[in-house]
Write a protein that binds this DNA or RNA. Structure first.
Lengths: 234, 234
DNA sequence: AAAACTTGTAGTCATGTTGACTATAAGAAT
DNA sequence: ATTCTTATAGTCAACATGACTACAAGTTTT
């Protein structure tokens, strides 16, 4: 088996297995993805999905959390496994199968702290991302497709919004994820019928037009919908 | 790293990585799953999901095909990866992460040929399956949940039917997968509106009642629906 | 041969959902 | 005061849905 120097848990990792993660965020009505600049290794100074090696005695889901925290400083997020990517030549020099995750978080809640083997961490507009190393482009595509599908039958998109938000923000979130345009009155009608949103007794502040009502989730309905699934077709 | 004897590609496999597969079939209006009886190893003589080790120079998808063919004799099927299961203690004695696949096939098209490390291979009614070893019960649950979700937005369920089939067979397939009952006329109306089915100029034979029309897929529409996705809500 | 039985297939109807659109409200900026 | 922007309410025709009824085309029973 080919070997190579890597400085994380050198003696303890599962040599042929890594984790890579697509972290989605939503800011200024755009869908964003968090990339890290590698500080060392084969792709030093290139932007790539955050990832790393799984320790021998570590649950893979735990490993994904650990890597994200160490590389980017992001701690609280919705994290879900996508699938394993295992083409023979996906990684140079040796055989490495990677388990891909995707995560949803709120960029404004965190200060990015590049750490470990990352010299920088930044949010990119998803449409601007090109030329990722290895098969990270493929992983990103797969992640986005999964997100597009998932927001239609689970209320997970809400993990990307601040706690209190307007209906337009919610609509723009769907528009950004699905790359479509929606009719405002119809969107309102549809989303309100689900009883998922509860109006706060608060309005937007600091906007130069009529202030919109702020809403938050009814967590009971949220949990129920998450469990039962629902269909949100446009 | 803990070691152990296994007699498949002993020197060439990725030690910590295996593949397990849930193969679905549909027979006598019931949803079935193919299990194999292990001929050796830790769970000798127990029924379990077919699976095995990935070779060092083998694409994981190719490995899944190979294992299914070797263990069960089943060659042509729809095969899709689910995800990796990687709890630390899921496998005794050493750390093994498994990549789970699920497959759809037509039981009547194949003779089961247990081979390799399997002494027997048989179709089981999915509701009758209990006490699978390792975390195979969890993998089976996950597979079924994925199948339930997937048949609602892709025409994949059709991989389980014979080439020519009646509308009732199709309806019973949905009923078996989703564990629901459907109204016959309404089901017809809905499925026919999709233009997915083309009537063969043939009727059922050998039935003791009015013979139903046989249908097959319009492969063009089938491919288009597979690509675009659709919603089949009941 | 007629009646009873089983499954297939067509159609009805009230209700609900959808998409496209109009209208008005509530502010801020000019 | 007028204009601009976004919020929010409501209308309407077209379509989809779920619950049924009715009838057709065969087999089996009597």
């Amino acid at each position: 088996m080919a070997t190579e120097n890597h400085n994380i848990f050198t003696s303890e990792i599962i040599d042929a297995l890594s984790i890579d993660c697509t972290i989605f965020g939503f800011q200024e009505s755009r869908l964003k993805v968090l990339l890290v600049k590698h500080a060392e290794g084969i792709i030093k100074n290139q932007w790539a999905l955050p990832g790393g090696w799984v320790a021998y005695n570590e649950d893979i889901h735990v490993a994904a959390y650990r890597l994200l925290k160490d590389l980017t400083g992001v701690k609280e997020l919705y994290l879900e496994q996508l699938k394993a990517f295992g083409e023979v030549d996906r990684y140079p020099k040796k055989r490495v199968i990677t388990i891909a995750y995707y995560a949803l978080t709120r960029p404004e809640n965190y200060q990015l702290i590049p750490g470990f083997t990352a010299s920088d961490a930044r949010w990119f507009n998803i449409e601007d991302i090109a030329n990722l190393p290895y098969d990270h482009g493929q992983i990103l595509d797969f992640s986005w497709r999964r997100l597009k599908r998932k927001v239609k039958y689970a209320p997970i998109g809400f993990n990307l919004l601040p706690e209190k938000f307007t209906l337009l923000q919610l609509q723009e979130l769907y528009e950004a994820i699905l790359e479509i345009r929606l009719d405002k009155p119809n969107f309102r009608r549809k989303i309100m019928k689900m009883n998922l949103l509860v109006p706060c007794d608060e309005k937007q502040i600091g906007v130069s037009h009529r202030a919109a009502n702020l809403y938050h989730f009814d967590m009971q309905v949220y949990d129920k919908l998450t469990e039962d699934g629902f269909i949100f077709e446009f």
